[in-house]
Simulated scan of single mutants.
Amino acid sequence: MPDDSALNYATANHKNDAISINYKKSQSYIVPCSSSFRDRVTAFADSQGASVADLARSVFLLVPNETVMATDDPGEPAPDDREVVKLQSGPSKGRTLRRKPRLQLRLPIGYDIARLRRALSLALKMADGEKMLSVESADDRKKRSDDQVARTRLEEDIEQLQRIIGDLAFEPLREGISSRSEALHVMGFAPTAVPDQKAIRGRYRRLALVFHPDSPFGDHQRMSQLNEALEKLTRA
């Protein structure tokens, strides 16, 4: 049985560019796992007309290594989870042996046992619909990147507009509106201005677009005083 430490040629962080695998040489891996996990993997491989090694190889070819390593390792079997096998050759032929359940697969040298379990677990998750494999072209990736850049710029523009509007917006009157000059101030007119009704309502509509609570720059207090100002100026 290969020793796990002798099979681990990968560095501790398991990055793709840090994994050295000799593709010209292969070896047999013994992967200890629970009997239920073993049975699910072998049943899935059989249903696809493939071997367990084919499943692991497919995952390593198609899925980024960070995704594989982010998958939970099903781990070693529990102490009471053992299989009984009868030795078929050697001096102990005919004897029965209790051992850890396992999967055996042949792959290039250099894979870590836990990484193999993770890859097979990910294959099961994808088969069950728990995980999805997304395939996108270089154009798709560029468009997604461009969209993200545009979204970031738009968010920055909105933040800048919010700051500008906050600086330019009228200061809400503590005691509310009690005079025509205060109503004109809230509407953005000079205190001595005499705007007609069309100008007043036009200014109200534009300011309401800014201060309405549903807008990105909404301000309930300012909107409330804007309504007060409109009522006072249209009533006068």
Rank of each mutant, 00 (worst) to 15 (best):
T192G: 05
N65C: 04
M187I: 13
G129F: 13
Q160T: 12
A236G: 13
G202F: 04
T11L: 14
F60S: 02
A70R: 01
D219Y: 04
I165Y: 01
F60W: 01
A10K: 03
R106L: 02
I200T: 05
L62G: 03
S178T: 04
V52A: 04
F37L: 03
A50D: 11
D128H: 06
Q88E: 10
A199L: 13
H220K: 12
R180N: 08
L105T: 00
D3E: 08
E136H: 10
G166W: 10
R141F: 14
A199S: 15
G202T: 14
V63F: 07
A169M: 09
I113N: 00
E231I: 15
L207D: 11
A236F: 14
P195Q: 09
R206F: 06
R235L: 15
A53T: 05
E136F: 08
V194K: 14
R222A: 02
S215M: 10
K142R: 13
A169Q: 13
E182K: 07
E182A: 13
E175I: 08
R174L: 12
A6S: 11
E175L: 10
L120Y: 05
R38M: 02
A127I: 06
D46M: 03
S58H: 15
P101I: 00
L168K: 09
D219R: 07
L97S: 07
I158R: 14
H185K: 12
K131I: 09
P79Q: 04
L61G: 09
S121E: 08
E130C: 07
L116A: 00
L161E: 15
F60I: 04
D39H: 11
D140V: 07
D128E: 13
R99K: 15
F170G: 08
I165A: 06
V186T: 11
A190F: 04
L154H: 13
L116T: 00
Q48W: 01
A18Q: 15
M1H: 08
E159I: 10
F189V: 02
A56I: 02
A70E: 03
M1A: 14
P79V: 06
S47T: 11
R99N: 03
A123R: 02
Q197W: 09
T96Q: 14
Y29K: 01
Y9E: 12
M187C: 14
A123S: 14
N13V: 10
Y9W: 09
D214P: 12
D147P: 00
S181Y: 06
E66L: 02
N8T: 08
S34F: 00
E171T: 13
D72R: 11
R205Y: 15
S58K: 06
T234K: 03
K100W: 06
